[in-house]
Every structure is written in C-alpha cells, then in structure tokens.
Amino acid sequence: MRKIRIIAILAVMLVYPSFALSEPIVFIVAGQSTAKCGLVEEVATGDLRTPHQLKEYHVLDMDYSEKPRIVQTFDQRSHFGPEVRFVQLYVKANPSREVILLKMVKNGSGMTRWSPKWPGEYDQWTGDLYRILVDFVIEAVDGRDVEWGGFLFVQGENDSVYPERARAYVQNLRNLVNRLREDLGAPKMPVMTSEVSPVLEKYPHQYQVNQAKINAALTGRDMFVVSNSALGYREDGIHFTSDAVLQLGMRFFWTYRTLLK
C-alpha cells in the first residue's frame, strides 16, 4: 500500500509540476505612514488572520530600526497596512502558492527620497530610501528563484504639500518604477499605487499628485492607480481608519486581478 501511495504522489507531481514545484511569489509594499496606519487593537482577530501560505514576512520600518525583522503573524506588531487583506485575498484565489511579503516604510517620506533621480534642489536626499529598498529586497530574496508578483506603493501625501514636488511627481514615479523593475530583473512586475486625499488645507497639491499617478499609469505598462474614494479617515484627516486600511487592501487585490487579465 505504501508503494502505491508514493507512486500516486509522484504521478501527481509529474502531471502537475507547477503545483509541486512553483517558486514563491513576492509582493513588495512601500510608502509612508499611510502604509501602516491600521491599528491591531481596533479590529477583530479574524480580520488579521495570517494564512499558512505566507511563508516569509520581512518588515523594514525605518521609524523604528534600520534593520529589517521577520514577522510571524499580521497581528504581531501594533499596526498594519493594506498588505494584510491583499495577501488574504490573493491566497484565497491561489491556495497553492507560497507568498513572500516584503514591506518597507518611512513616515513623512516624499518622492525626493523614493525616486532614484530628483531633478531639483533636494539632490542631497536623492534616492536614499530607494537604495535601501533595493538592498532590502535583494537580501530578503537571497538569490532564490521567485516570481515578482507586484509592487504596492502607498505614498504621495508629503509631495502634496509642495508645488515643485507635485509638478515633478510624474517623472519621479516613472523613474522609481522603471529603475526598480530594472534592478530586480522584473520588467513586467505589476505596479499599483493608491490615490491620496488628505486634508486639503494642509495638502493643497494633492490633485496634481493624483493626476501625476494617473499619467504615469497611462503612459507606462502593467501599472494602475487604486481609488481611495469614500475610505474613512482618522481625526487628523491624513491617516486611514483601520477598517479603511483593510478596504484599501481589498481594492489593491481587485486592481491586481484587473492587471493580470
């Protein structure tokens, strides 16, 4: 009986090699504080369920440490981002795929720091977060064969304050996307970025930033802008509520499915 069982398993692996041997899929999440403003204490335990398909979850939170840490569960830290609901929905649709999740965030960071090029007066900040991001991703993957599933970028509030940064946003976003794909050897990696809509009085150039995101997506490939329409904000008018963070993650997944069709 044991020999028959082993032969049956081998037969399944030969007929469905992708099921048994497919490489893990990697999703990269990056941005500023809006990428991590969900609070664990505000949501039900079930909403933060960590699927067994999530094999690795590396987090580099630049506001706490310059070294990444491996997180075991979605509720291990005090806060979370849209990656929670995104991964939950992804593995529900793809139950046989192993997922590696890589997240890097820095409060208040603008495109002066995320873009590998900045054609303005902020050259001293050019690309420092970008360089850290690439090193972080490459070190986490550690030379393994992986599929680059997508890049989720939650950022733009900082640039909505300054007119010169808002004007340069479209080119800086293109530079970020093109260079990241090149440096990772992932020319077709899907890219998704979310709209911004903080308090208008403090962030008067948000419409220009959102239009820049749309323009970059329209002129690029495999890139999409995720709507944040009707998502709830906290009293500060800048950060999403915990429920809104989960909803944003759902919208990222819906958008991801659209990109793959």
Rank of each mutant, 00 (worst) to 15 (best):
residue 124 Q to T: 09
residue 37 C to W: 05
residue 201 E to Y: 09
residue 246 L to Q: 04
residue 83 E to C: 06
residue 179 R to M: 08
residue 94 N to H: 15
residue 240 F to A: 00
residue 45 T to Y: 13
residue 120 G to Q: 08
residue 243 D to H: 08
residue 8 A to K: 14
residue 144 R to K: 12
residue 159 D to K: 04
residue 205 H to G: 05
residue 19 F to Y: 14
residue 47 D to P: 04
residue 74 F to I: 02
residue 49 R to S: 12
residue 207 Y to V: 00
residue 62 M to P: 00
residue 136 F to T: 06
residue 90 Y to F: 15
residue 12 V to Q: 09
residue 203 Y to N: 06
residue 87 V to S: 02
residue 165 R to Q: 15
residue 137 V to K: 03
residue 32 Q to F: 05
residue 234 R to A: 06
residue 169 Y to N: 04
residue 33 S to Q: 12
residue 92 K to W: 03
residue 128 D to E: 12
residue 242 S to F: 03
residue 114 W to I: 07
residue 194 S to H: 10
residue 26 V to L: 06
residue 194 S to L: 02
residue 221 R to Y: 08
residue 11 A to C: 15
residue 248 L to Y: 04
residue 122 Y to H: 15
residue 11 A to W: 13
residue 186 A to K: 02
residue 235 E to Y: 08
residue 180 L to A: 03
residue 167 R to Y: 00
residue 34 T to P: 02
residue 122 Y to T: 11
residue 175 N to K: 05
residue 141 V to Q: 05
residue 56 E to V: 11
residue 190 P to D: 02
residue 220 G to W: 04
residue 201 E to C: 08
residue 187 P to S: 02
residue 54 L to E: 06
residue 216 A to H: 03
residue 19 F to G: 00
residue 1 M to V: 09
residue 153 F to E: 03
residue 48 L to G: 09
residue 254 W to N: 15
residue 182 E to N: 07
residue 46 G to I: 07
residue 189 M to K: 04
residue 188 K to S: 14
residue 77 R to S: 14
residue 49 R to K: 13
residue 184 L to N: 05
residue 186 A to M: 05
residue 106 K to E: 11
residue 26 V to G: 06
residue 37 C to Q: 05
residue 60 L to M: 08
residue 222 D to H: 12
residue 88 Q to W: 02
residue 231 L to I: 03
residue 213 K to W: 06
residue 141 V to Y: 02
residue 50 T to E: 01
residue 165 R to T: 13
residue 146 V to W: 08
residue 192 M to E: 10
residue 69 R to M: 12
residue 65 S to K: 07
residue 250 M to N: 15
residue 191 V to W: 12
residue 125 W to P: 01
residue 174 R to F: 01
residue 171 Q to N: 14
residue 67 K to H: 11
residue 54 L to R: 06
residue 205 H to I: 01
residue 67 K to Q: 14
residue 169 Y to W: 07
residue 92 K to Q: 15
residue 139 E to Q: 13
residue 67 K to A: 14
residue 186 A to P: 00
residue 128 D to P: 02
residue 3 K to N: 15
residue 112 T to R: 09
residue 40 V to A: 03
residue 191 V to D: 03
residue 101 L to D: 04
residue 36 K to V: 10
residue 3 K to W: 15
residue 144 R to F: 00
residue 24 P to W: 08
residue 210 N to H: 04
residue 261 K to E: 09
residue 65 S to A: 13
residue 259 L to A: 01
residue 208 Q to I: 10
residue 74 F to H: 02
residue 121 E to L: 10
residue 159 D to I: 06
residue 124 Q to C: 06
